[in-house]
Nucleic acid binder design. Structure first.
Length: 283
DNA sequence: AGCTACTCCTGGTAGC
DNA sequence: TGCTACCAGGAGTAGC
């Protein structure tokens, strides 16, 4: 499932082919993919606009738009589980299976493909407002070990669901949370306000290292869903320490990796490397 | 404030 | 072989 590294890879590889392009038309094969406002307002927002900058915020692809040289909102794409974004040279019709939205450009055609239909490609007149709820970007300078420690202490939440909460930190998903927690030797059920300064510093360092290494390897592909815009799988799945490795030995200590469900999410950990939090005294 | 359950979806797979 | 039941999961929302 696309998380920060997969979205970052998508943006980097798409940027040369998209920046400067003008959107000539919009064909929507699954109306929900363009959001609750419907196809007409999506078309009105994007057709005729020029893509001037392609970037990423959290797990969103952000395509800034202009009309006649003036800012004209943005296209936000969230890939969710199975979304894929790519440019094809020729506008074949019909588009391939599972293509939900096609945007013919002045050169090529931008495709939004999404098997499970959870993803969204939406137009926003005011993209800042649409992104305002998101927490800090983990790879920026502002996201320091100290900042993370303060944020953790300010909440009384179970660690794993807190790290998945996009208003707390932006861009992490199930895979990279499990990997980061293992590398930081923290149990996913630890309470955030009981993570001390040293452990916060480890978590901070490991979140950043995990994300950076995953970006370097163009993300993780272990099923048929995530591919780069060029159609290639990422290769970070070969570095997984715990994700999807239940029943196999921990690569650090040899104990069997276990899978439990935390906040309705499959959660993978080593109970030796990531000791359970001390049980709360029950009165 | 923080937790759980539920919703949206469909391809893949386990079980019979 | 062919059927059905169930699963995965990001994020928004409702209810407690």
């Amino acid at each position: 499932m696309p998380e920060l590294p997969e979205v970052e890879t998508t943006v980097r590889l798409l940027r040369p082919g998209l920046e400067g392009r003008t959107i000539l038309d919009a064909r929507v094969d699954w109306p929900r993919s363009v959001g609750p406002d419907g196809e007409a307002s999506f078309r009105a927002g994007v057709v005729g606009a020029r893509i001037v900058a392609l970037g990423r915020r959290a797990k969103y692809v952000v395509a800034r738009l202009e009309r006649e040289g003036r800012p004209a909102g943005a296209l936000l794409v969230h890939l969710r589980m199975s979304g894929r974004l790519y440019v094809e040279a020729r506008d074949e019709s019909p588009a391939g299976e599972w293509v939900r939205v096609s945007l013919p450009l002045d050169r090529g055609v931008l495709r939004f493909l999404d098997v499970r239909k959870f993803g969204r490609i939406t137009f926003h007149q005011d993209p800042e407002a649409a992104l305002a709820h998101l927490g800090p970007e983990p790879l920026t300078e502002e996201f320091t070990a100290d900042a993370l420690h303060r944020l953790l202490r300010a909440r009384r939440r179970v660690l794993k669901p807190l790290l998945l909460d996009q208003t707390f930190v932006a861009g992490l998903g199930n895979i990279y949370v499990d990997e980061s927690l293992h590398r930081a030797r923290l149990h996913p059920l630890r309470r955030s306000d009981r993570v001390d300064r040293a452990a916060s510093a480890r978590l901070h360092a490991e979140i950043r290292a995990t994300l950076e290494e995953a970006i370097e390897r163009e993300g993780s592909s272990f099923d048929t869903f995530y591919r780069t815009p060029e159609g290639q799988p990422g290769s970070y799945q070969h570095q997984f320490q715990v994700y999807g490795r239940a029943g196999r030995p921990c690569l650090t200590c040899g104990r069997e990796i276990v899978r439990l469900v935390v906040a309705q999410r499959g959660t993978h950990l080593c109970t030796r490397c990531q000791p359970a939090p001390r049980a709360r005294r029950v009165r």
